[in-house]
Write a protein that binds this DNA or RNA. Structure first.
Length: 273
DNA sequence: CAAGACTCCTGACGGC
DNA sequence: TGCCGTCAGGAGTCTT
């Protein structure tokens, strides 16, 4: 599942290849992939537009266009972006013909991914929380205490913090030695500092590794897998030994999400919400 | 306000 | 071998 590090990697790789390019034509092959406006208006609005800049906001990628509007997209589970040929043409949902004869393909097996053409990027991203790469421990402490939520679902909530998904929440909580069921309003200041640090550090290391690829769904636009899955401490490691203490990693379900914890490093809270 | 259920999708996987 | 049920999961919506 592409999360912040994967989207960041994709944007970094696409930036030199797409900046300054013009979209000559857009073709929508699966209408629901375009969330707004209509597929027809989406194509008409993009024709002839030059891509001025590429950036990321949370898990969204944003292409700023020369008319002031923005093409905003979310990969959700299985969305992928390719310049040139898509490995499997059957999953190409939206195809952009660029100047110079190249093309950009939005491919998506499960069809959850979305693209939008909007006046301002915020219209597509909604009011999401701050970026976590420079997360401040003091801010996080205050924000956690202002809510009464379990830590994991709160960290997954994009309106609270933008960019974390199932993998990096589990990894960050383990590194901070906090249990996912811990009540957010019972996190101490030092624990919040540790959590902020582990989130920043986990994301930075994942970006350095160009993201995580443990199934066929995430590849960089260059077609390469990421390498961060080799550094997972808990995610997908249920039944295996914790690398820091040797205890057996457990898999539980929190908020309908597969969740991985080390019972020794992350003791269950007395006051779980 | 918090949390659970349900929905959208399809490939992968376990069971027989 | 092959069919079938179940599951995973980001985020929005609805219900409790």
């Amino acid at each position: 599942m592409p999360e912040l590090p994967e989207v960041e990697t994709i944007v970094r790789q696409l930036r030199p290849r797409l900046t300054g390019r013009t979209v000559q034509r857009a073709e929508v092959r699966w209408k629901r992939t375009v969330s707004r406006p209509s597929a027809q208006q989406f194509c008409a609005g993009l024709a002839g537009r030059r891509i001025e800049a590429l950036r990321r906001r949370g898990k969204f990628f944003v292409f700023d266009l020369d008319d002031g509007r923005a093409l905003v997209g979310h990969l959700r589970m299985t969305g992928r972006l390719f310049v040139g040929r898509a490995p499997d043409e059957a999953f190409a949902r939206v195809v952009f013909d660029l100047d110079g004869g190249e093309r950009l393909v939005f491919s998506d097996v499960r069809k959850f991914g979305r693209l939008a053409l909007v006046e301002r990027a915020e219209q597509a991203t909604g009011a999401i929380g701050p970026e976590p790469l420079e997360l401040d421990g003091g801010w996080l402490h205050a924000a956690l205490r202002a809510r009464r939520r379990r830590l994991k679902p709160l960290l997954l909530d994009q309106t609270f913090l933008a960019g974390l998904g199932n993998i990096y929440v589990d990894e960050s909580l383990h590194r901070a030695r906090l249990h996912p069921l811990r009540a957010s309003d019972r996190v101490t200041r030092p624990q919040a500092e540790a959590l902020a640090g582990s989130i920043r550090d986990t994301l930075a290391r994942a970006i350095a590794a160009e993201g995580s690829s443990f199934d066929v769904f995430y590849r960089t636009p260059e077609g390469q897998p990421g390498a961060f899955q080799d550094e997972f401490a808990v995610y997908g490691r249920g039944g295996k030994a914790c690398r820091s203490c040797g205890a057996t990693i457990r898999r539980l379900v929190v908020g309908q999400r597969g969740t991985h914890v080390c019972p020794k490093c992350q003791p269950a809270p007395r006051h779980a919400r």
